[in-house]
């Protein structure tokens, strides 16, 4: 596909671009911030950017909700009779899993950060200098 700025800022792409910007904000936060809690928040922002990305993958503008019912599914002939396309449900299921995983990671990180505060008396990573990586 030929590259063009027009295509980059078309209505479809702008959402993906915003998603990329959100991801970069999170990554910047992890790389630059020196406070443990801010690093955890940065990780959270990255996760949300990816969740948004997955939801965008499954989205169809004007799409129908993907539930089979008596109205749109003929169980005897196994045929669909729908007038408009359905939204892809799989990314939503994947994101549900990813959210749970993100929750577990965030909980664990906050627990560790609290214990670090008990030991060092600070949330600043410049004070954490026992290891030299």
């Amino acid at each position: 596909m030929e590259f063009s700025w027009h295509w980059c800022f078309s209505k479809k792409m702008i959402e993906y671009l915003l998603c990329l910007i959100l991801f970069s904000v999170g990554l910047y936060c992890i790389l630059v911030k020196r406070n443990l809690i801010k690093i955890i928040i940065g990780l959270g922002i990255m996760e949300y950017a990816i969740n948004l990305f997955f939801i965008l993958l499954g989205y169809k503008s004007g799409g129908q909700f993907p539930i089979l019912s008596k109205e749109n599914f003929n169980i005897e002939h196994f045929t669909l009779n729908i007038t408009q396309p359905m939204v892809d449900p799989i990314p939503q299921a994947l994101i549900l899993t990813a959210i749970v995983i993100g929750l577990a990671v965030t909980c664990l990180l906050i627990a560790i950060a609290l214990r670090i505060y008990e030991k060092y008396g600070s949330y600043d990573i410049r004070d954490l200098n026992k290891l030299k990586g």
Partner: peptide, 21 residues
């Protein structure tokens, strides 16, 4: 849960989680 372990674990967790993303 000593100082070194917590510090190492935090570093490992942040780097490895971003890799997973």
């Amino acid at each position: 849960t000593e100082q070194e372990e917590l510090e190492a674990s935090f570093k490992y967790a942040v780097m490895s989680s971003s890799a997973s993303l």
